[in-house]
Write a protein that binds this DNA or RNA. Structure first.
Lengths: 347, 347
DNA sequence: AATATCTTTGAAACCGATTTCTTGGGAAAG
DNA sequence: CTTTCCCAAGAAATCGGTTTCAAAGATATT
């Protein structure tokens, strides 16, 4: 009835009058056991609510059924959503997730990598952090590779020279979705705010932004590309101050993520500029922040479900030793809410 | 130099010309080893970047150095913050966290509880979910107790009749902080929106709200207490519609959490009612949602750092078999931002 | 120099599962 | 009725650590 302390297959075996090996066979289903004994053993397992010790099993099978996940900051809804989707998928295959937050500390990233290895996780998923950095740190790459050599490592960034599997958001396509939409609304004066120069995803977005403007025959104005210090709302607010200092305000703003957009909206509200009537805003990530602003934000969704699926499937296939594509891309789509409007001014 | 596959203490021992026992002694530091051998062994460990197999160690020590955490939804910034603070504290003591999301599914809660036990985590932290429910489900309590009997379980809710350790937010005090503030600004017509009837924390807040109104000699108006279906922004929006239907709008609104407040603000913005000039809003949780609205939200902060500390310390003490208080309370303080103003209307 | 005490270290048991190897019994084949 | 084959199930090895126990060596005591 009650879980007793330290019940083992030996106890079960004794009570069933069989050997521990037979109990193990019932547990794993890896070998045939006579119906009679099988039922007797199962009844006893149920009676005591016996659960085999995963440590012992892991030691014996040299496999823990745990996947490690290293994220920059789980409070960031982007990471939280990716994590959740990974968990959903992983649990379908009997895996549990172990999580560590690096909080942007490169040393912690190394330490947690070691820790995951020590825990003998079956795979490591690394989302955000240094794997996103453009400046490829050779030491870090070496360190990751030493581990990727033993345990499959899946990253969502780039990390040149690493032996990791990559599942990446197709930033080019994501930006295209945004630009097509905003331009279809008649906008030509479009700013791109937020993001740092040394982050791969930001650099990709910027380059596609310029490329698409050209394709549409619109002049690229460098003062409309505003760098942000971080990826939070205050950075968005600061970016807007820079735009306010210009002679001509853009009619549409693309924010690097929802946080940045929210900060931008706050700056606009303070100035009495209304969204979307006077200025339109789109952003990336489609986190719940996009639901929480007034008006709600139109934002690019990365299809998190598929993102999580691909990440976990890459991990599982790699664990099984199957061939896994080194790079996979995720396509995005726009979720239209209330922050964009048709341009009706005529200049 | 490189992590080699499946290096064990036996390999280290062989290369150092000692027995595995001696290597183990160096690793654990639990026994004296001569300086000469110690240094030789340490050099070899470093050379190969050897990390002992945590599964084997765990099996041997019957202790995994892993703490399991069950939350309702890690995307909710409240849970994410609690988790992060727990992780910070736990990692100081060499513990790693394993996380599962129940997404409000009671069956999953049971399954994950079992899974954690199977993984032989050293303690389980359960935040949100059924441990917060007022309707005490005897089956669930039994199930939790069966596990709490073997592994310490720490919950942030109530769960009558359970053998768990409780670390709770002092909802009474939290509400008092809010009410004192809002009343000091001159408000008398104060609504309390959001939250469900069967959630402990909500019920506590409501009862304190009424109590405090009486203490200040203000009439309790039942139409100012609006229940929300969920704890999200849309619920906040719906609550506001109910208030709009009343003859007299309140001058201040207390929202059950930041999400609800954000939804309420959206409803107000749509109606052209300005915050805080025409109506003030306060809320609970002080998540980053409070930073992301325009204006930023004044919100009650639960001192998450201390919250995480107390939870983890309770877990660690219980693991060590020390005496742990069955209930501990967390005190809150108000973080004042821009969503409240003095009442200057005279009726 | 002989005895007592303290350190250091290895051998072996143990943690709790899985799995290989082996054997005994029953069914099928000759 | 014997021989062959298959299947169920136990004994024992294994996974990789920690720890107890005992022995050997070094140091201190008389």
């Amino acid at each position: 009835m009650a879980v007793k302390k330290n019940l083992t297959i030996y106890d079960i075996a004794k009570e069933a009058g069989v050997s521990p090996a037979t109990v193990s066979r019932v547990l794993t289903g890896n070998a045939r056991v006579s119906k009679l004994k099988k039922e007797r053993i199962e009844a006893i397992i149920k009676k005591y609510d016996f659960k085999p010790n995963a440590l012992a099993r892991g030691l014996s099978e040299t496999k823990s059924n745990v996947i490690g996940m290293i994220v920059a900051d789980i409070r960031n809804p982007f990471y939280a959503t990716v994590f959740l989707e990974c968990e959903k998928e992983a649990s379908r295959y009997g895996y549990t997730l172990m999580v560590c937050n690096t909080l942007g500390d490169p040393d912690l990233e190394n330490i947690y990598l070691e820790k995951m290895y020590e825990q003998r996780v079956d795979a490591i998923i690394n989302v955000g952090g240094r794997v996103d950095d453009l400046v490829s740190n050779t030491d870090f790459v070496d360190h990751v590779n030493r581990i990727a050599n033993v345990i499959p490592v899946i990253i969502t960034g780039k990390l040149d020279g690493s032996d990791c599997y990559r599942v990446n958001i197709d930033q080019m396509q994501a930006m295209e979705v945004v630009m097509d939409y905003i331009i279809s609304l008649g906008h030509k004066d479009i700013a791109l705010i937020g993001g740092r120069d040394n982050v791969q995803s930001t650099v990709d977005k910027r380059s596609r932004y310029k490329q698409l403007l050209k394709r549409y025959g619109i002049n690229v104005r460098n003062e409309y590309i505003v760098e942000g210090k971080r990826y939070d709302d205050d950075s968005g607010y600061e970016c807007m101050q820079k735009l306010f200092a210009l002679e001509q305000l853009p009619t549409a703003i693309i924010a690097i993520n929802d946080f940045t957009a929210a900060g931008a909206m706050r700056a606009l509200t303070e100035r009495g500029i209304s969204v979307p009537e006077e200025i339109s805003i789109v952003s990336f990530d489609n986190t719940f922040i996009a639901e929480v602003t007034s008006p709600k934000l139109t934002s690019v969704s990365y299809n998190y479900e598929k993102f999580g699926e691909k990440i976990v499937h890459a991990a599982l296939s790699a664990i099984r030793g199957e061939d896994v594509p080194r790079i996979q891309l995720i396509q995005s789509e726009l979720v239209i809410r209330g922050s964009c409007a048709k341009l009706n001014k005529v200049d």
